[in-house]
């Protein structure tokens, strides 16, 4: 059995006038320590799937198992990082990164020190007593990463966490996140619409087609790209050929829908 198993997920949103199927028959598996990406145009149900996996949203049909247990029993094993940092603006950085520990009643001297040292490790020193608005966008997203990692989740969900940042910051953060996750041996699922980001960061890329969201194709990223940091992967000779392949696949999806 895999680390994470998603079995035959269907999800439909109901409104007064319509019912919209966001996900249709999604099955996939992720191994421990693996980094996978879900790539697809808007409307392919990427965020819906993440919400289902992190048990924020009960699916219409299907099950999700984490280490062979239903995810509803493993709430604190899953960390979630959103498109924007959503640090609580009235709390200091320290209070923000300890939030998850506090809510799940795991806050003690040991976990507190671990969280604070994680903050240092990620290159933020002397900001503990500052408020989020005193920090730049990239710094805030790093704080959000620390906040997510502080509760030591086994599985990390990254919902387009770099999309609100400027390009340079984004590239730097990709490297940092990738390196941090490697160090801790975390399993992660990244949702993105950026083909390059998916290739540079992941071991596998799931390409989703829209309306309703389906798993269209899975791409395995070659070993050479997987072992180098994202920034170097983008400059690797294999990178552009994979980019082309995925690009063509996305194009064919577009044409099919027109």
């Amino acid at each position: 059995m895999s680390f994470l198993t998603v079995q035959k997920i269907h999800h439909t949103y109901f409104t007064k006038d319509t019912s919209a199927t966001a996900l249709s028959d999604i099955s996939l598996a992720v191994e421990e320590g693996e980094f996978v990406s879900i790539l697809g145009p808007s409307g392919c149900g990427k965020t819906t799937l993440l919400s289902i996996i992190s048990s924020l949203l009960p699916p219409t049909q299907g099950t999700v198992l984490l280490e062979n247990k239903p995810i509803s029993t493993a709430k604190n094993d899953i960390g979630y990082m959103l498109q924007q940092d959503y640090l609580l603006p009235w709390k200091t950085i320290e209070e923000n990164i300890l939030l998850g520990l506090k809510l799940s009643k795991q806050l003690n001297e040991k976990t507190k020190l671990a969280a604070l040292s994680l903050l240092k490790q990620i290159g933020l020193t002397g900001v503990e007593k500052q408020l989020p608005k005193q920090l730049s966008g990239g710094m805030r997203q790093r704080v959000a990463l620390v906040r997510t990692l502080a509760t030591e989740p086994k599985l990390l969900m990254l919902d387009e966490p770099f999309s609100a940042l400027d390009y340079q910051t984004k590239l730097k953060l990709e490297d940092l996140v990738s390196q941090t996750l490697d160090e801790f041996g975390k399993t992660a699922i990244l949702v993105t619409h950026d083909i390059g980001e998916a290739i540079a960061m992941s071991d596998r890329v799931f390409l989703f087609s829209p309306r309703p969201g389906r798993l269209h194709k899975t791409f395995h990223i070659p070993e050479e790209l997987r072992k180098v940091p994202p920034f170097e992967a983008r400059n690797h000779e294999l990178y552009s050929s994979i980019f082309q392949t995925i690009w063509k696949e996305l194009e064919s999806l577009d044409q099919r829908n027109e």
């Binding site: 924020l56 960390g79 959103l82 998850g100 809510l103 799940s104 997510t148």
Partner: peptide, 12 residues
């Protein structure tokens, strides 16, 4: 902003 609540919910 419902996303603040979402962040808290991800921590259970």
């Amino acid at each position: 902003d419902p996303n603040y609540v979402k962040v808290l919910q991800t921590f259970g």
